[in-house]
């Protein structure tokens, strides 16, 4: 009987991480940027039907990059988590932090226990209620690593370069149009062509709205905002 090859645990983890990172790097990027009235999500996504950003709960939104079926799975899990919690307790008790932790646990255990890790990264963002407080941006990686980011976040293919642009140009209190233009500029930095509005998926958590803060920005409004 031939002996099974010995592979060290470090090597296994390294291989898995490499596998996940490659998968994610192939995908297009998403950014989240704070603006005056909330948080803006901009994704490069030519499809108008298959979304990368989504509403989770009143003040919480989700964005995912990588393999669609995997982050879609996570998105629905998030909606379920939030709705169950909000029904069992109250709407105010649903928090991005709890959800981000659940994602982190789930991705972490999949990464260590399954042969193939999920090739995804997700963002969970939350705007505060009217009583004040700060925006929250959680970035969860394929292995369950969780980071809370301040003011902006980027993930996907060329996240490093994009983050660089955001770091250099981010200002507090930007209008929606300014934030959007910065976001689009950041997404274009890794490409040699300009992005068409039809290639973008844009959504906001808008604090000025009533209960449900999430809103998608349609093609017409997007065009106007980009021209401003």
């Amino acid at each position: 009987m031939p002996l099974p090859y010995y592979v060290s645990p470090e090597q296994i983890m390294k291989d898995k991480a490499e596998y996940a990172r490659k998968g994610i790097a192939r995908g297009r990027s998403i950014i989240a940027v704070e603006y005056r009235d909330g948080i803006l999500l901009v994704a490069e996504n030519p499809s108008t039907l298959l979304h990368k950003t989504s509403e989770i709960y009143d003040r919480i939104a989700f964005a995912g990059v990588g393999k669609f079926n995997e982050f879609e799975n996570l998105r629905i899990a998030g909606v379920r988590h939030a709705d169950l919690r909000g029904y069992a307790y109250s709407r105010g008790d649903v928090t991005a932090k709890a959800l981000a932790n659940a994602y982190s646990q789930a991705l972490g255990s999949i990464f260590t226990q399954d042969i193939n890790p999920f090739e995804v990264e997700v963002l969970v963002v939350e705007v505060p209620d009217r009583n004040g407080g700060k925006n929250e941006i959680y970035h969860i990686l394929y292995d369950g690593t969780i980071e809370d980011e301040v003011h902006y976040a980027a993930m996907g293919g060329q996240a490093e370069e994009i983050r660089q642009v955001l770091t250099e140009n981010f200002q507090e209190g930007m209008t929606l149009a300014q934030a959007l233009q910065l976001g689009v500029r950041a997404l274009t930095v890794t490409q040699n062509k300009a992005l068409n509005p039809s290639d973008l998926e844009v959504a906001v958590l808008d604090q000025t709205r009533e209960r449900r803060k999430f809103r998608r920005i349609g093609a017409e409004e997007l065009k106007q905002l980009l021209e401003r």
Partner: peptide
């Protein structure tokens, strides 16, 4: 943790909250 997550999370059979509630927290 992992198994229960999958059973609750990876199941696409329903988009009904009532069904979800019946399965998860009757």
């Amino acid at each position: 943790m992992h198994e229960s997550w999958r059973s609750g999370f990876a199941n696409y059979l329903t988009t009904s909250f009532v069904d979800l509630l019946r399965a998860e927290s009757p």
